[in-house]
Design a protein around this nucleic acid. Structure first.
Lengths: 340, 340
DNA sequence: GAACCTTACGCAAACGTTTGCGTGTGGAAA
DNA sequence: TTTCCACACGCAAACGTTTGCGTAAGGTTC
């Protein structure tokens, strides 16, 4: 089995020094035209490619961005990655993706692994466990070693760094407002437990919208779900015979599940009950009825996050010292799960 | 801004040599207990982590697996990645993911980039364009440089390497058989154009099943779709007033779209028409009615692919010389889009 | 006191690059 | 013939590790 050809091998073959080969390939004027051509022909013949590892070591940078997300099998996160890749590739960066699987430990391991030489900086959405545990030492350690971090979506207020988020509360408020504006008055919310930052913020937005309409908040219209993967029974019980005319779900799965159980309970959507979800994923789009939802513009988030990071990586110290929080606009996508 | 601490810095600080530090951290008996403890304490204090890049260079391996897939925002591929990650992490490998976006050029670029030092081996599902173009030089070049490649799902028969696939034809046959066994006789198929290997194989399986039941193949029951992203109108036209009692769709989107347009055309599913899809994704599961489908067991594919690759990477030359093709079983998941 | 053995450490090479600077060769100018 | 200058190339260091081997210092044995 052949191995990759190196400068050294070319040098030996052509009976010149390594540096001559290196310079020739870079078209240095120091090297005679003749030698340059010979070297280049040889290099092409043997398909020479500089060894990135050696370059990384020498340049003390890898030209690689590390992305760590809580789940890889998740439409929203993959769209964000898509955005990151777009910018990164444009600017000559490689993207390396790890999933923490929502585990704090795995997040730490992944971050440390990538931080010890594999990536120059990070784009990160923290694991549930991390939010619960409130242990951010790994992130702060990474930054203190000179590697910039951009947090997105599931961020941490206490950590000072660049951030890309949507205004979750505002998005939720928009959704709730829309329901109110089409005449709904009894709006239930399907949300997550409070330690999930985005869930809590969306709940707040919902409450704010109600207050603005002078509608009292009712405990019995709020369901905080812990186990996302087994939410159907819980949602079904919650919704059964409840006197409501709308449901706001803080994510796609809750919205679809609500639609399903309501259908089973004999309710018509949107005639009896309107539904709005959050996250414009594949489910919302293809479900029957298609779901009105709040789009988070995942790709945009990825694009902005990547830009922030690359600015930090390539910027001078002035840029390096200031931290920015970019808020991506959400938008309401009206489909068929809400009345006109 | 601090930089990462190196052996050299520790050595200088403690006034010993670099090799002493290195050996001390490895608990070498060559170094006195006293020094060892001192070094270790210091290393912990300054949070020393060996530089992976330097190690990669020295060891001539990166302990990283490169995964290149056609689309990142795709449920099936992400489940495969999940499987790869599982095995890789267990065995101390890092996973780096790139998407080719179904572009031949981007596939080549990604592969070359990763091949020049970032990964030891590859798990790869080729881009549509590559299948169409039949240009595999980049893959063969990579292998000829000593880096093993495992192809999965969208593979290339002409390239000799390890492969992980499902028996697409058999899966399609199972699906069609199921439709036949519940009494359907006029089964339409929604498939892709022939150059997509998996589409063609699934079509073949469909035809095989029909033949086994002595049902003549009818041209007008076969729709080959080129533009997956805008298939709705095409499918709608195709299905309108067609005399059929079942639809077999070679992917999830076709199945859901068929369900949607049939619903719109006033057909009841599964009473008037049964539908079976391919790929057990999030859509099939949550759609109403939930879709009967052929599961590809993406995670298993990822697991097997990763195992094959790591075997090659760590195996002696005996293992290295033989190539295996693993066929993952598909299974029929019966849901509500087919009659009992 | 000489010969020898441990102990505890340092040296240097290697992985594959890049690059500033030193140097030998040749030709041209004086 | 001598002096000088381009030209074309090689040397060596550096990036951060690991590791076989060399070697001082100190102790033991006769």
């Amino acid at each position: 089995m052949k191995r990759k050809v190196t400068l050294k091998q070319i040098a030996k073959e052509l009976d010149v020094s390594i540096s001559t080969v290196s310079k020739a390939l870079k078209d240095s004027a120091e090297i005679s035209l003749d030698t340059r051509q010979k070297v280049k022909a040889f290099a092409k013949l043997y398909n020479y490619k500089p060894n990135n590892i050696a370059l990384s070591l020498k340049n003390r940078k890898t030209k690689t961005i590390g992305v760590i997300i809580p789940e890889i099998v998740h439409h929203f996160f993959t769209t964000v990655i898509g955005g990151v890749e777009k910018v990164a590739n444009e600017k000559g960066y490689n993207v390396i993706i790890c999933s923490s699987n929502n585990s704090f430990d795995k997040e730490v391991i992944n971050l440390e692994m990538l931080a010890s030489g594999s990536a120059d900086g990070f784009i990160l959405s923290v694991a549930k466990e991390t939010q619960l545990k409130k242990d951010y030492h790994h992130i702060e350690e990474t930054m203190s070693q000179g590697m910039p971090v951009v947090l997105f979506d599931r961020i941490i207020d206490e950590v000072v760094c660049d951030k890309v988020i949507i205004d979750d509360a505002k998005g939720a408020q928009t959704a709730t407002n829309h329901l109110l504006s089409i005449g709904c008055k009894k709006i239930a919310i399907l949300t997550t437990v409070d330690y999930i930052s985005v869930g809590k913020l969306r709940t707040n937005g919902y409450l704010r919208a109600l207050r603005a309409y002078d509608i009292p908040e009712k405990e019995e219209l709020i369901l905080k779900i812990e186990d996302i993967d087994n939410c159907e029974a819980e949602i079904s019980d919650f919704l059964l015979d409840k006197d409501i005319d709308a449901v706001f779900a803080v994510n796609e799965l809750f919205a679809v599940t609500a639609a399903k159980v309501l259908d089973r309970q004999g309710k018509k959507i949107p005639d009896d009950i309107s539904i709005i979800g959050f996250t414009d994923g594949i489910l919302s789009k293809h479900f029957i009825p298609s779901l009105t939802t709040i789009s988070q513009h995942g790709e945009d988030m990825g694009i902005r996050a990547a830009k922030l990071l690359i600015d930090k990586l390539e910027g001078d110290d002035a840029v390096t010292e200031e931290y920015r929080t970019v808020i991506i606009d959400t938008s309401l996508i009206e489909r068929k799960s809400t009345k006109k």
